[in-house]
Design a protein around this nucleic acid. Structure first.
Lengths: 234, 234
DNA sequence: GATACATTCTCTACGCTGTAGACTTTATGC
DNA sequence: GCATAAAGTCTACAGCGTAGAGAATGTATC
């Protein structure tokens, strides 16, 4: 018998479950990146035959969807908050922190919906949309206006997170080195401004910039609310 | 006898080049998606051994970077435009159209930089950043302020494009069907607003929404300009 | 023409991937 | 004890990226 790794000395291993599979997958992605999440590797991590995973996810794509869902489940939204702007700000910062906590999952979050029609996505990934719509409608926006506000808000939010993560470098020791090395590599002639910004690029206060952008956007969107209220029937 | 496609009847085939390889790769991605772009398949498309591609791209990742670059090269930016807001609006719409023209490349555009420190990216992907910085500095922003404006602007832009593409469905015939099918699948109890929005979701005027968002954002950002500098040259 | 060299392309092979299909083991109900 | 269902395993296949050696071709020099 091939009782390979640790586990119980007895014949039985811990029972598998979708939750266990997904959380192990997430841990693996967090630790070693998306590419490390292969069926074989995950099976090994769970001390099971890779094929057993197909009981809990129809295929690798579904597994990735599951991981997305699991991460988004960490996001708490309160659609009943009477201060919708404050709530949107809170959600934004929460999502930002979530992204920083699971940077390797962000490509998934942002990419998977591109290949799945809205209606067929995992429910967990649609929950934020639904709840933010609820929040906005509660705040007085018409459903259609709520959708537009959502799009502007969520688009901006995703964009910010992507942007920030693109400049983010894991090891702050190496940061300076790689940054300088990289920037030095740029032809001075065609990239003068970028090269000159080296030091400024190095300290990026993502939370502050997110706040600034949100302030602009939310106040603009709030303006549409008061206009809409004055003219349109509720 | 493997002389498959057209080409000369003689022994020689058309000479390969990086441009040819990349544009063929782009065509393949446009036509059949990112997954279809394998070394073997691309080799077959060019009627060459897959290994010959490694002369023109160090590996598959570099090939993907090359495709990103090729697409971004289509984007024209005029850093000398005296009306920076108009220029930013134009860039935004151009990039949006570019994304709609090459939807399968968007994941690449958005995802690849996440795994490459800024300084080590293909130069072609840094050009827009540099040129927009130039535009903003020319307009009177300090370099640091220009960077902040760029981040807010470009983040919003990317976010919008991603958002729009996520709701975009290729076949307008099937659109209604899949949409309804999908929405009908949603539990009415937990997704009331989303279900109710079906018709509104169906017609999404991306250009208009992009314009609206930009209007809010740019006017807000322009405000920072006038505050930042007491005496304005404009 | 002949020779040497550099470039370009091809061939073979290795270890990895997702997963279909048949099979074995274990838990459960009668 | 036995039937049935559920869970897990095994084997196998087609496809992937790409290392490394080799063949074919183009060019420079004599």
């Amino acid at each position: 018998m091939a009782d390979s790794a640790g586990s119980q000395s007895g014949s039985r291993k811990a029972p598998l479950s979708r939750e266990l599979v997904l959380s192990t997958a997430l841990a693996l992605v967090d630790a070693e990146g998306l590419d490390a999440l292969t069926m074989r590797r995950l099976g090994q991590e769970l001390d099971r035959d890779p094929m057993s995973l197909y009981r809990y996810a129809a295929n690798r794509a579904a597994l990735l969807d599951g991981v997305s869902e699991l991460v988004l489940d960490e996001l708490a939204i309160f659609p009943d908050d009477p201060d919708w702007q404050a709530q949107l700000r809170k959600i934004a910062h929460d999502l930002r922190l979530l992204a920083l906590r699971h940077p390797n999952v962000v490509p998934l979050l942002v990419t998977r919906p591109l290949s799945t029609p809205l209606g067929l996505r995992p429910l967990g990934t649609l929950r934020p949309l639904e709840q933010i719509l609820a929040l906005l409608i509660e705040a007085g926006f018409s459903p259609a206006a709520a959708l537009h506000v959502y799009r502007a808000y969520y688009g901006f939010l995703c964009g910010h997170i992507l942007n920030e993560l693109q400049e983010y470098i894991v090891d702050p020791e190496e940061n300076e080195a790689i940054l300088r090395l990289g920037l030095h590599r740029l032809p001075a002639k065609s990239f003068p401004h970028l090269r000159a910004l080296g030091p400024v690029l190095a300290d990026y206060d993502g939370a502050a910039e997110l706040d600034q952008g949100l302030a602009i956007l939310l106040s603009g969107l709030a303006g549409q609310l008061s206009i809409g209220q004055r003219e349109s029937p509720s």
